[in-house]
């Protein structure tokens, strides 16, 4: 109940004259929120026992994990951050892959990182596609992280032996990538539908920038792949331009894109991409490979 009440604090802002993509997304968000409130009240009367889990599927229900659409990446963080990559406790995230006893034997490492994983749609699709690869979602909004955590736990419970290779962590990946990953540890990084930050003064809050690409190039091994997609053309151009001008990334050829099963997931697996598809929106993707810089 309290979660629903808290959600109600966000005033529904119906500005239908809004022209930018962000505003239309915000309107969409608020309209749906409003609808959800009406539905939630009904549901509440019917389902008094554990209301955050769906009765039929056992999965957490998103409406109880509603959060702001945005979070300020510049503010000081108050969540724990591992001092260095060797302080990341893998046995906590992947109990079936890494028991606490063989923590020293660090043969198993996280290889995929979904930066700003949102509600975790991509991770869940990737989990079954690469069942032996450890992957982690990184998300700044605590309620959303909580939802993904519950979702993964519920999926593990419902499908024994599956979904053991995915996990989520609440962190600010713009600040703390080096605290989680060693040099060259990752083979894939995902940036799906990131916050567009339209205002020029907020461009430095964008998760793809030429300076941050230095850090992503550090965390990615040579031949690692960075996947980006957005429904905002301006941001798509920006991300492409950043990657194109960076000496440690090169564009992936059309044939390779065709052959890569992951590329198809970009525009279908996440909650955000499904929404874009539902509204018949366009998407702009940029997929680049980490290369050795020319010396």
């Amino acid at each position: 109940m309290s979660a629903a009440v808290e959600g109600g604090c966000i005033e529904p802002k119906l500005n239908l004259n809004g022209s930018s993509a962000l505003e239309s997304r915000a309107v969409d968000f608020h309209l749906r929120l409003h609808l959800h409130h009406q539905l939630a009240e009904k549901a509440m009367l019917e389902n008094e026992a554990n209301p955050t889990l769906s009765k039929s599927t056992g999965l957490p229900r998103k409406r109880f994990y509603r959060a702001r659409a945005h979070s300020n990446p510049l503010s000081d963080s108050h969540f724990p951050v591992p001092t260095s990559p060797c302080h990341v406790n893998l046995s906590l995230h992947f109990p079936q892959f890494c028991s606490s006893s063989d923590q020293i034997d660090s043969s198993k490492k996280i290889q995929f990182a979904d930066i700003g994983c949102g509600f975790g749609g991509l991770l869940i699709s990737l989990s079954t596609l690469f069942p032996d690869t450890l992957m982690i979602g990184m998300e700044l909004r605590d309620k959303v992280t909580e939802y993904v955590k519950e979702r993964i736990l519920a999926l593990r419970l419902a499908n024994p032996g599956q979904y053991q290779n995915i996990s989520v962590v609440r962190t600010n990946s713009m600040k703390y990538i080096p605290n989680f990953f060693e040099k060259g540890q990752l083979s894939k990084m995902f940036f799906l539908f990131p916050d567009p930050h339209f205002k020029e003064k907020n461009h430095r809050r964008r998760v793809i920038s030429s300076h941050l690409l230095d850090e992503y190039a550090y965390a990615l091994g040579v031949d690692g792949i960075i996947y980006t997609i957005t429904d905002v053309e301006e941001l798509g151009d920006w991300m492409k331009a950043c990657l194109e001008s960076h000496p440690m990334f090169e564009a992936i050829t059309e044939e390779e894109l065709e052959a890569d099963p992951v590329v198809k997931l970009l525009s279908s697996a996440t909650e955000e991409s499904q929404k874009v598809a539902r509204n018949g929106g366009q998407t702009f993707q940029a997929v680049y490979r980490r290369i050795m810089p020319a010396t």
């Binding site: 001092t83 260095s84 990559p85 080096p178 605290n179 040099k183 030429s210 690409l213 230095d214 850090e215 190039a217 550090y218 960076h246 000496p247 440690m248 810089p293």
Partner: peptide
Amino acid sequence: LDGAHEIQSFCLGHT
């Protein structure tokens, strides 16, 4: 002047 993009390492341990 073209920027320094290649990170050799991060020294992490201070709290």
